[in-house]
């Protein structure tokens, strides 16, 4: 079960350089044909200074430079009992190739809930705020992890 005393604990997410091809690779893998994610000129015609990061791009630095192992271990969460309940993004500023984004991750909340069938679970919310190289806030991500008990 998730250790409630960990709420508020912070973790760094190392600087991540946003690469053009990694943006394209994500759009291709999703199968999203929107040319703004792959073609700089098409993006410019729609008012972007370059190809913008797609809506779910934050999962890329989130996985490749993951600090998940750290906070999961500190929370004492059993990996075999978790599901990814949901994901939420707030967009503050566009993310473009060449940006270097760094994250600060916080254990935002741990709440115990009981399902209709009476089984107990912990709902853990992990928040990561990303800033770019100019120290401008670009994105906030909130991940909901459900740990069955």
């Amino acid at each position: 079960m998730a250790d409630k005393s960990q709420v508020g604990r912070e973790y760094e997410l190392a600087p991540w350089e946003v690469e053009r091809c990694k943006i394209k690779e994500l759009a291709w893998a999703i199968g999203d044909p929107n040319p703004i994610y792959t073609d700089k000129e098409a993006a410019a015609k729609e008012g972007y200074q370059d190809i913008p990061a797609p809506p779910t791009y934050a999962t890329v630095p989130g996985n490749w430079q993951s600090n998940t192992g750290q906070f999961m271990d500190d929370l004492g969460i059993n990996y075999m009992m978790i599901v990814h309940g949901g994901e939420e993004y707030e967009y503050h500023k566009e993310i473009y190739p060449g940006d270097v984004i760094s994250g600060k991750t916080t254990v935002a909340s741990v709440v115990e809930k009981e399902s209709k069938s009476g089984s107990k679970m912990d709902i853990v919310i992990i928040e990561t705020v990303y800033n770019n190289q100019n120290n401008e806030k670009v994105l906030t991500a909130r991940t909901t992890i459900i740990e069955r008990k």
Binding site: D32, E46, Y48, P54, G85, Y89, Y91
Partner: peptide, 25 residues
């Protein structure tokens, strides 16, 4: 799957206007 939903969103609303996006699995 969230990427699929994001495709449908920014196919309709230009990405630059998107402020919040969330899913439940």
């Amino acid at each position: 799957l969230m990427g699929f939903v994001g495709q449908a969103v920014t196919n309709y609303v230009p990405k630059k206007y998107l402020k919040k996006f969330s899913v439940r699995f």
